[in-house]
Nucleic acid binder design. Structure first.
Length: 696
DNA sequence: GTGCGAGTATGA
DNA sequence: CATACTCGCACC
């Protein structure tokens, strides 16, 4: 070909009146669309330019979802900008079509997704996949027909004459919390305070949900919007109940996968167009396109549901932290317990702690009793051989006269119940008739009720000594306990049968952690039964996680002034102590102190490289360690394959440890390396995952 | 993934 | 010397 090919194509692209047959003229102004292609290939995760044909000019707005020919195939992407100048030295392909003219990728969202991708050494388009709901054609039509009405949705609409002063409701929700009034006032005044809220209740007027709802109401007084993220549907229901009280049902939208594509997309567009300015939902709601954002809030950040399950495995807390930094808005992290990450925010002074005062807490929280406590055991020598620990038994019995009683049991699989290998008769404790279970890693089965070890168990039916694991979820436990407490209505909540609310006064509610229904008046008592089994899990995170589950259950129980009592049965007194004292902040501070000394997360950041040993070696070949960056491994992972194929090398994992300060540098380098290797298509690709809490 | 150009093998 | 084919890599 004789002449310069770029020259030729540019002339064509810019629409000289007479074009080659088949090419349509380009748009008159800003004929170039910068498009972010949706791909999970790291080296292609960037912006490419296309010519906008005149026919697509009107629809091809920044933020629109489009299709474009890329490489061999037509791929989808989003227009990030329209510009006038084409890049030098490339010939531009035309945009194939505009899928939807709704500008779903806003500037702000692109900036956020980019920051998240950088933080996690991942792809921008992977982040966007979680952030932008699937398009629904009929919803597009609704919005196309609707006259553009960027209503100022501010303090005028629902609140009528403005928000009813530092409302009575807000005062009640935050009673006992020093500094709360100031925090709310700052929100209302348009400032951007950042706080870590130590909620103590999960029901009633002073619940975390009420507290968060009032924070949202305050920020709305300043005319700004808010985003609230919660781990699951049950928490969302609690929050929505309060928001309806405080704001009104039409003043917010929910964004959650559970609603299905149509309402989710509709709500997304309503936010996008400023029809509503408050978004609540599960983890993907962190990206909600709220206009004029004033507050991001997160409830219970320790819940692992907030961790995205797809690459780059981002956590809603980090997303919201990045977002609040970018938009300079207020931030609120609420929880009954406190995660290590949030403790860092308090420790560094980034956020202030909103904590109820000691004397207030003493009255407002239930009494906590540890039956495994040596002091208790001395006073109650019957304990080891009683049926349920005596104290637990009595707490339940007496509690049932005053209200519902919660029994928290470990999830199925944590401590599978045992039955006879030969005749399938359920294995029972010879002392108390409770179910036997394999708890943790100890070989000897133990009674789940009294904890007694069943050494040398013999089946009462056939005399066999062999035991097999059988599934005993909350359902089975409920059955067992129902027999133990005749007269009580036994309710079970776990797995896919989660109940949000329990109304019955004399219900014995058996629930797994995270599935506990709310009792509107509070539980009279709670028994936290499987502490030892839960604590036996081998993970760096275990104590924090178990404590979190206990605190959440305990926050559902009436205060001690109304007879509320929590009985916990666990041997590790160091873990139980903060619960007994109701001191989540102290527990988090101590745990973080330990982590800092050991240089373990979340005091430092980590990245895990997973893949074939050869792949990891290639990845690390000219990767510079230094500064705070150190590497551990690689170690071979226990293979999940039933049979390792000969010649096929197994998966390995290398861990990188680095400081938060060096984080951006390290993740940028990881990302760069990933892209370079992917472009070269070196064999044995390596998966990079940052700050996976379940890795250690 | 796929199309394309460079480079190389192959046959007339 | 012309044509067939593979390989690598850019992809707007």
């Amino acid at each position: 070909m004789g002449s310069d090919p770029h020259q030729l194509s540019l002339l064509q692209g810019f629409g000289t009146p007479k074009n080659a047959p088949g090419t349509s003229p380009a748009a008159a102004t800003n004929p170039v669309a910068q498009v972010l292609i949706e791909t999970s290939l790291p080296h292609l995760d960037r912006i490419f330019d296309y010519v906008v044909p005149e026919a697509l000019d009107a629809e091809a707005v920044p933020g629109a979802r489009v299709k474009a020919r890329f490489g061999g195939q037509e791929m989808s992407g989003f227009i990030t900008r329209r510009t006038s100048n084409a890049p030098e030295g490339v010939k531009l392909a035309p945009l194939a079509k505009v899928v939807s003219a709704q500008p779903v990728l806003t500037d702000e969202l692109l900036r956020l997704a980019t920051a998240v991708a950088e933080r996690y050494a991942g792809n921008v388009s992977d982040v966007l996949r979680a952030a932008i709901p699937a398009r629904v054609a009929k919803v597009d039509k609704e919005f196309a027909a609707r006259p553009e009405q960027p209503v100022a949705p501010d303090a005028t609409s629902a609140d009528g004459a403005g928000y009813p002063e530092p409302s009575a409701g807000a005062a009640e929700a935050y009673a006992g919390y020093e500094g709360a009034g100031d925090f709310l006032a700052q929100l209302a005044a348009g400032a951007a305070p950042r706080a870590v809220l130590a909620s103590h209740k999960s029901y009633g007027r002073a619940s975390w949900a009420a507290q968060v709802a009032h924070a949202v109401a305050s920020v709305r007084q300043s005319g700004r919007g808010a985003v609230v993220v919660v781990p699951d549907a049950k928490d969302l229901a609690s929050l929505e109940a309060e928001l309806q009280q405080v704001l009104g049902a039409d003043q917010y939208v929910r964004l959650t996968a559970e609603d299905g594509p149509t309402p989710r997309y509709r709500n997304y567009l309503r936010l996008l167009h400023g029809e509503v300015t408050v978004a609540v939902g599960t983890r993907s709601a962190a990206y909600a396109p709220v206009q004029d954002l004033g507050l991001v809030a997160l409830w219970d950040d320790g819940d692992d549901l907030l961790l995205e399950q797809r690459s780059p495995y981002q956590h809603a807390r980090e997303v919201l932290l990045l977002r609040s930094a970018q938009s300079g808005c207020a931030a609120l992290f609420a929880g009954v317990s406190r995660s290590g990450e949030v403790e860092r925010l308090v420790g560094s002074g980034w956020a202030s702690a909103l904590t109820p005062s000691r004397p207030f807490l003493r009255k407002a929280t239930p009494r906590i009793l540890n039956t495994a406590d040596s002091f208790q055991q001395e006073r109650d020598p019957m304990l080891r051989h009683a049926r349920l620990p005596h104290a637990a038994w009595r707490a339940a019995q007496e509690g049932l006269e005053r209200g519902p009683v919660l029994v928290q049991v470990a999830r199925t699989g944590f401590s599978p119940a045992l039955s006879c290998q030969d005749c399938r008769t359920p294995a029972r404790c010879t002392d108390c008739n409770g179910p036997l279970a394999q708890s943790g890693r100890t070989a000897t089965p133990a009674c789940r009720w009294c904890g007694r070890l069943a050494t040398n168990y013999a089946c009462p039916e056939c005399g066999s000594h062999r035991l097999r694991a059988s599934v005993a979820g909350a359902l089975r436990t409920a059955e067992e306990l129902g027999r133990a407490f005749p007269g009580a209505t036994v309710v079970s909540s776990s797995g896919d049968h989660i109940k949000s609310v329990v109304e019955s006064k004399n219900a014995l509610v058996v629930a797994t952690p995270g599935a506990e229904p709310v009792a509107p008046e509070g539980y009279a008592a709670a028994l936290l039964l499987d502490g030892n089994a839960m604590l036996s899990r081998e993970s760096l995170r275990t104590p924090e996680d178990v404590l979190r589950k206990w605190f959440r259950a305990a926050s559902l129980v009436k205060p001690s002034s109304e007879g509320g009592l929590v009985v916990v049965t666990a041997d590790q007194e160091a873990v139980v102590a903060p619960l007994v004292r109701w001191d989540p902040a102290g527990a988090a501070a101590r745990e973080m102190q330990l982590r800092r000394e050991l240089q373990l997360p979340p005091a430092v950041r980590i990245a895990a490289l997973t893949g074939k040993a050869s792949g990891i070696e290639a990845f690390m070949a000219d990767f510079e360690l230094g500064g705070s960056l150190r590497s551990v491994g690689p170690v071979e992972l226990p293979s999940r394959e039933v049979q390792e194929r000969p010649g096929e090398s197994s998966e390995h994992r290398l861990l990188l440890f680095f400081s938060y300060q060096d984080g951006p540098k390290v993740t940028a380098a990881l990302r760069h390396r990933k892209a370079a290797l992917a472009a070269k298509r070196v064999p044995d690709p390596v998966q990079v995952r940052c700050d996976g809490i379940d890795l250690l």
